[in-house]
């Protein structure tokens, strides 16, 4: 068996093993980063300014 054949055959065996246990491979921990999906938390002491996405004022002072 040539070196290339060995590598190909070994790759096939690895992929077959991986596919035989898909649940373990697919289970990834959830990312703690929300990528800006959630609204920013209001900053204490800065009342009445609303949030970044829903400002209480639309015109600057």
């Amino acid at each position: 068996m040539s070196k290339v054949t060995n590598k190909l055959a070994s790759g096939i065996r690895k992929v077959k093993e991986q596919q035989a246990t898909p649940a373990a491979a697919a289970k990834q921990p959830a990312s703690p980063v929300d990528h800006g999906k959630a609204e920013p938390i209001a900053i204490p002491g800065r009342a009445d300014t609303g949030s970044f996405l829903n400002p209480s004022r639309v015109w600057p002072d």
């Binding site: 068996m1 040539s2 054949t5 190909l8 055959a9 065996r13």
Partner: peptide
């Protein structure tokens, strides 16, 4: 191509 020549033998794994 070496890959082409190895295909028959390697695919024996399937």
């Amino acid at each position: 191509n070496a890959l082409s020549c190895s295909m028959h033998e390697a695919l024996g794994e399937l």
